[in-house]
């Protein structure tokens, strides 16, 4: 299988389209015949990253690279950055605003879920410079 690149814009305007990039990626992976449990792990990684970009950064961009050995998901935004990465990695820690929590988000599970569902997680972030999250799921 040659390397396949999937690119998605994450619209940060409203929550009604939130999750669309993740759903589209999931369908694409299924069409490629990727094993279901791998698809599920990638889906969780992608959805959490997508929602973080929507909630905290007004949207962003996602790229998924599928190669025979691994799936690499990169989610990048131009938001405020993560002030305390160590805290954000703890389950239950959230800086989501109340209006977002009312929708069922802000459980403080985003980054922990990404870590659990990926084999490698890398976070590049700086205050005022946005966030780039790279996750690798090995096949």
């Amino acid at each position: 299988m040659p390397e396949v690149r999937l690119s998605y814009d994450i619209d940060g305007d409203d929550f009604s389209s939130a999750g669309e990039a993740s759903v589209a990626m999931k369908k694409a992976l299924r069409q490629m015949g990727i094993e279901p449990e791998t698809i599920r792990r990638c889906s969780v990684c992608m959805y959490e990253g997508e929602m973080n970009a929507v909630i905290h950064a007004g949207g962003g961009r996602a790229e998924v690279l599928v190669s025979p050995e691994r799936i690499k998901i990169t989610i990048e935004d131009d938001g405020p950055g993560i002030a305390d990465v160590e805290a954000a990695m703890r389950e239950g820690y959230s800086t989501a605003p109340p209006r977002v929590r009312e929708l069922g988000f802000g459980a403080g599970m985003g980054l922990p879920n990404m870590k659990r569902c990926s084999d490698e997680l890398d976070i590049e972030t700086a205050a005022g410079r946005g966030t780039k999250i790279t996750m690798i799921v090995r096949l």
Binding site: F15, S16, A18, G19, P36, R40, V44, Y47, E48, M51, L103, G104, F105, A107, G108, M109, G110, P112, N113, R116, C117
Partner: peptide
């Protein structure tokens, strides 16, 4: 809590919730 559910619910489950928004 949507992230919690997504991370923990088993495949092929019946998901019971009081959340009713599009997410």
């Amino acid at each position: 809590l949507l992230s919690w559910v997504m991370g923990r619910a088993g495949r092929d489950c019946a998901w019971i919730t009081i959340m009713s928004n599009v997410n």
